[in-house]
Amino acid sequence: MRTIMAIVEVVDETALELAHAARSLGEVHLTAAVFGAEDAGCAELARYFDRVVNFPLSPGAVFDAEHAAAALTPWLAAEQPFLILLSHTNNGLDLAPLLAARLDLPMLADCLELGLRDEQLTAVRTLYAGKVHARVVADAKGGALATLRPGAFDGDEAIDRGGRIETAAVPPGPPARRRLLETVAAEAGSVDITQAEILVAVGRGIEEQENLEIVQSLAAALDAEVACTRPIVDKNWLPKSRQVGTSGQSVSPKVYLAIGVSGSFQHLGGVKGKPFLVAINQDAAAPIFAVADVGVVGDLFDLVPLLEEKIRARKG
């Protein structure tokens, strides 16, 4: 039976997605390598994985890619799994390519789909921020590594597999070349978009800072909060605390109105819990339309004020 190793940063939905993707490749023996998990976390993982290997962290330490790479490299080299899976998160970007290079393995990054064909690993991944998809293939005879886009795979179902829980010995190595000094929250803002029921998200399509007014005004009509994509924060048009995405906040509203948002996965990665997603965008090919429930292809500068007017009229 093929062995697959999933490197788990934290015990959450993404771990289950890794498990599900691995199981979809056929009959496999599935191991989760986790860092500094508590007993409950290991037990939770043991329901989905055949084996859970916990790498202890020194008190107060957090998952750190440099540390993880140092611990995992010799261990994985010894275990020789058929496939190593990680989530394509920020930490994944910090760790996965480093591991692949150290272990000299082919790597498939940011996969939306994963498949197996003979000894070859196939995947679907995106190009040009989702405008084009590519089917790619890697020879996995000597093993391979893949990172999976968060949210692209279903979570595994809860069948209690009664996985064996082990604690790994972290081999003593040279002192880390990278040392954590502090963890900081992105600039705190006065608003907490993570708690909002309705979000009006604005992206690059708004073109200019002063055009934000129409979106803010629509949000006011909807009793919603304004959220945004990364480019809007990069331009200092809105504070970081309003940014939704992998480098911003994770939100789970009931309704998500995406205005002028192309729908990069970095942004959509922060949209959890399957809200009712409405997209207004000029570009009919924008990836947002692939995930939205309702799409409007048109000029947001005409549509947004009109929408606000109708909403206000309906609310009286």
Partner: peptide
């Protein structure tokens, strides 16, 4: 990693 094929993402899937 070799490219097998490029294709356009399924458009408006669900939308």
């Amino acid at each position: 990693v070799r490219l097998e094929e490029l294709f356009l993402p399924p458009r408006g899937e669900g939308a």
